[in-house]
Amino acid sequence: MDFGYSLSKSSTMKIENLENSKFKALAKLEPDATKCIGCGCCTASCSAGVFADMSLRQILLSLQRDCQDKYLPMLQNCMLCGKCMLVCPRGINTRHLILSICKIYGIEQ
């Protein structure tokens, strides 16, 4: 029956029985993947991010929460210029990390 309204999809991330083997694989390959402190320097100075969506900070978090589908396409905007690597206060090799994410999550660069 059409009531003209229906159940809304919950926006809550449910973190239980989280099967996160991909992120584990990434962390093994890139131990620095867990080091991000969410400062946002990468996004702020991103050459691509000024014109298109690109935020490595958000991508990294979404991978940990296993809600990456919406975030992964951003990687295609990356130009691998390396500016983020230059500004990262935690010294993360972001270019290498981005390439590893693409490899593990099957994103074409």
């Binding site: 926006s11 809550t12 991330m13 239980e16 029985n17 958000q58 979404s62 929460r65």
Partner: peptide, 12 residues
């Protein structure tokens, strides 16, 4: 809320 992702979160 995961305030860096701007999403509510429920954890068991």
């Amino acid at each position: 809320e995961d305030t860096l992702l701007c999403k509510p979160l429920r954890l068991k």
